[in-house]
Design a protein around this nucleic acid. Sequence first.
DNA 1: CGTGGGCGGATTTTT
DNA 2: TCCGCCCACG
Length: 727
Amino acid sequence: MDLSPILNSLNEAQREAVTAPVGPVLVLAGAGSGKTRVLTHRIAWLIQTENVSPHSVLAVTFTNKAAAEMRARIEHLLRVSSSALWLGTFHGIAHRLLRLHWREAGLVQSFQILDAEDQLRVIKKVLKAQELDENRWVPREVQYFINKHKDEGRRPQHLKHAVDGTEAQMIKLYAQYEENCARSGVIDFAELLLRAYELWRDQPELLRHYRARFRHVLVDEFQDTNAIQYAWIRLLVGSDGAPFVVGDDDQSIYRWRGARVENLHKFREDFPQAKLCRLEQNYRSTASILEAANALISNNSGRLGKTLWTSGARGEPVRLYAAFNERDEADFVVTRILEWSQRGGLRRESAILYRSNAQSRSFEEALISARVPYRVYGGLRFFERAEIKDALAYLRLITNHEDDASFERVVNLPARGIGARTLDTIREAARAAGSTLWSAAQSAPDALLGRSAAPLRAFQQLIESLGVAIAPLPLHEQVDHVINASGLIAYHQKDKADRGEARVENLLELVSAARGFDPEGDAPPLQNFLAHAVLESGEGQGTDSDDCVQMMTLHTAKGLEFPLVFLAGLEDGLFPHQRSLNDLESLEEERRLCYVGMTRAMRTLYFTYAEQRRLHGVDNYNSPSRFIQELPPALIEEVRPRIRLPHAADVAISGLGASASRALRQSSFSEVLGGSMRLGTRVRHGKFGEGTVLNIEGQGPQARVQVNFEQQGSKWLMLQYANLEVM
DNA sequence: CGTGGGCGGATTTTT
DNA sequence: TCCGCCCACG
């Protein structure tokens, strides 16, 4: 047997991990060290040399993208279909199990999945039913409470010991939410995992079956597992299984949503015989970038320890730009990107990374005015759009009449004369009878419903008849029929604005998505499609082919790489974020986030910060991020010479600590590029005296500038006449 | 029933 | 500043 494709391309450490004897293995894989490669090659190795059947391999990831990539790579390596092996996200695998064993899991066969938005709606409904004030009981907080406990494996009945009235109420809401979901036959994301865990925990024969089957369990991004995910893995693996987990404690950035880095430590305790492999050779970045990243992360405590190195070139130094404000910061970045493409680089090779989405705006404005195409990641995805969710709600309600969330969503969409009053009546009847909205509506006497009775009967008739009509149709025709017969298409066509047109297009796109959908398993395609829509909300819909500057948050950037990277907004209070400044654990997570960002860069890495930043309508004068101070000065090259700050900002920062003020004053922004005025340029005017350029509009002789004069305050001046002297 | 104005809040996000 | 949500009005 020829093993060269599996082993040849590996370095020593990677090969050791891939060929480790079957048994527990923990791979500490640094950024860019070939983590996915090790995972996929391990699977190929098991199948080819250990005679492991693909049937007995289970591999879990966190994102659909990672799962898809792994599957593609394995098929490429083995040159066979990998359909026999279970490879998917935690949620996807849990869903698969629950579909197979819905009865044992205590679910209805047609159960549907709630996404985060649906979940919030259900919570709001529960609050309303309890007549609780949403200002006192913030739906998002209730949602957080519920998910947090589910992520830790706790049911309401485990939470009897409330410390105070607030917690007692929360527990009550949690229980009521659960009842609601059970009645409607829906489960949320956290519930998928918890149910899958309880399924195995409470069904010993089932667990035995799966233990015997999945002799090889592999976990990607292990540092991101939460308590229930790890407990689930542990159940499956038992005490004598062979888990192969890959992770990096330095890239743990999801503690805030339940991820437990400690699982790495726990794994070593739970499997003391586990083989530990470290992947430290990096194939992505230059030595300069790696040294800076190593220096930064060494400030964290309690690391498992790992130092990235490369056999590659030292490369350019990491650069730092102190911008005057966020506009100057954006201009600087755009100018560098223009230079990059003038030298033959592709735009899509560059990425602007930031801490929070709000930061994208100034970059977008600068990119638009420079006519540079860009793509912002994050935001609404295809299956999350309102009109798509409306259409899906029809399909869900047809599949399962008891789905209250879907019922509420479409019962009066398009408007058919079933108003809020009627809905209240139905809700009340449902509450009294302990039934769902659908059955309450069905059994409500006409007298109770008044003039809404007829439209309501018509609606239920519509749902029933849609169910009959689409039963024999292929999937895409089912979708097509429903969006038309429900009146959704006509409803949006009536909206003459652009958005109406866009929504119709999206609905038609949904039909195409259904046409191209490849159902797996033998469940009805529609049910499959509906689950797919929730679990894979539609990343990759975007046009990857276009050559665009890539813009995203640092969190989104994890796992990606770019030749040219800008880490923007390196200011205390923004990054690290204000809410993480006072807590060591959170601060360390921010530092890891910075480390993740830095290690995205292959060739060129820029840090930028703004001395003045307008946020939520007010000017902030933050000191440069403490992370910048943590980088060895020898590795950093400041882009501009240092000159004193102008008066106005000087005053504004006087409230800061001494070192922060010093750091700010040392930074500069005074410059005239190519003879043109720049933001932050210090100027002198014959009458008004000295000031700083705050704003520039127009070009050439028509240009106007806004100058903040130290004595006279801010004024707009025509550049042509003002006779400004650049200082 | 749909929209416009007033109000409050404003990390990070996948599934 | 800006966006989303709620309520009041047409």
